[in-house]
Simulated assay, not measured.
Amino acid sequence: GNGERVTPRLDNGSSEAIKLQQPFKFFGRTHNQTFVNNNGHLTFTEPLSDYIPLLNSRRDIVAPLWTHLDNRHGGTISYREDTSSVVLELVTAAVIQYFTNLPLPFTATSVFVATWDSVPYSSGEGVVTFQLVLISNVVHSFILFNYGNIAETLQRWLAHYDTVDFAHSYNFSLSTASELSSNSNVNVNGRWGFHVYDGNTTKQWLHEQS
């Protein structure tokens, strides 16, 4: 089903292992499960409780906002895998709009959405709202980061993705976390998109920076 599930209200907590109806390919590795971790990241092989962000965490990781968050004090962290035609049409249109050099036709067959809704920083400085979307049609995989209101923080934070072998990574080079909402790499403020698998592991991933 497409029901929304929530992660436990637990400091440094994570979801249980989420079995994906359709495997997600991330730079050549195929993942059949994922974990939504409360501190702003998603991992595939095991949960991750770390709240201090690491550039090289030695795992496949997608981290829209890796920092110390505490859902015991408010907000909701939820997730769902969606195969409804309405949502698939929506993300298909977004991918075609953002990735103009894609060999068409592209049609999404699976979407996984994780949402951090008004979750407070551990420091009490404010709350953050953001979303991570995994999009796939087996041959191509994409990730979208959607940022709503992101309060300023003095906590260490990181927005990035990385692979277990460090071969593919992208680190957002912004000076404050709140700038995630007012910047973009796809010309839509607060939205970032990345093509993370194209069926050809030898391709040069030109959009990356180390």
Rank of each mutant, 00 (worst) to 15 (best):
F194R: 01
Q155A: 10
T43H: 07
V164Y: 09
E4D: 14
Y161C: 00
Y161L: 03
N187A: 13
S181I: 08
V62Q: 11
S85I: 12
R191Q: 15
D50Q: 07
G40R: 04
V91H: 10
T201W: 14
L132V: 06
H160N: 14
V119F: 04
V111F: 02
G74K: 01
S78H: 06
Y121W: 03
W116A: 06
W66R: 09
V186I: 01
N149C: 03
L180M: 08
K203F: 15
F35K: 05
Q209F: 09
V186A: 00
N187H: 14
Y79D: 00
D82V: 02
P105E: 05
F27A: 07
V91P: 03
T7V: 10
L20I: 02
L132A: 05
L55K: 15
S184P: 01
S184D: 03
S184W: 00
H168L: 03
Q97Y: 14
N12I: 15
R191W: 13
V95N: 06
L54N: 06
S14M: 05
H160L: 14
S110C: 13
A177G: 05
W192Y: 11
Q33Y: 12
A159Q: 04
D82Y: 00
V196M: 02
V113L: 12
S85K: 10
S182Y: 13
N39P: 05
V86K: 12
S85Q: 09
L134A: 15
V86P: 07
T107F: 11
R29G: 06
I96N: 14
